[in-house]
Amino acid sequence: MGQIILGVGDYGASNRPGEEVKTFALGSCVSVVLLDPKTRTVGMVHVALPESAINKAKSVEKPGYFADTGIPALLAAMAKFGCNPKGKGMVVKLCGGANVMDTNDTFQIGKRNALSIKKVLWKYGMGAVAEDLGGNFSRTVSVSVDTGEIILNSPGRPNWKL
C-alpha cells in the first residue's frame, strides 16, 4: 500500500485508492485531516506551533509548521485535486495536541495549537466532526484514502480509530 509520510510542518494530499497519509509521533503538534467526499481526496497537515508571527521567514519556507499558514496551504494543495479551495463540503478531523503532566500555561503548546487551528477553521466556516486531542501521550496518525478512517497509535496502547 502506498504511503505519504509527513514530517513536522509538512502537508500532503492524495486521491489514489489504497494509499494512506501518515505522520509519526505527534506530541504537542496537531494533525489536521481534511476529507473531501466529492473528489475522494484526503489531506493532512502536521502543525507544530499556533502562530506564524514568531517567524515569518519560516512560514514562507514551511507554511505547514503553523496553524494560521498551514491550513490555507493544505487547502491550496487539495484544490489541485479538484477540491473546493475554501474547504466547502470537507470533513475535518483533528488529532494530537498533547501536553506534559502538570503543565503550566506557558507549556500548553498542545492546547494552544488546537485552539489556533479551530479559529482558522472557523474563518472558513469549517468545524471538526471528530477529534482526539489532549492527554499526556504522543500519537502516530494515519488516514486511509479509501475509507477516510484514521488509525491512531501510541506506544503501550492498543491502536484506536477515529
Binding site: 513536522v8 509519526f24 509521533a25 505527534l26 506530541g27 504537542s28 503538534c29 507544530a48 498533547a98 501536553n99 506534559v100 507549556f107 503548546i109 498542545g110 504522543s138 501510541s154 506506544p155 503501550g156 496502547r157
Partner: peptide, 9 residues
C-alpha cells in the same frame, strides 16, 4: 517529548 521525541510509552 513535546516535539514527539520520547523513548516510548
Amino acid at each position: 517529548m513535546m516535539g514527539g521525541c520520547g523513548t516510548g510509552a
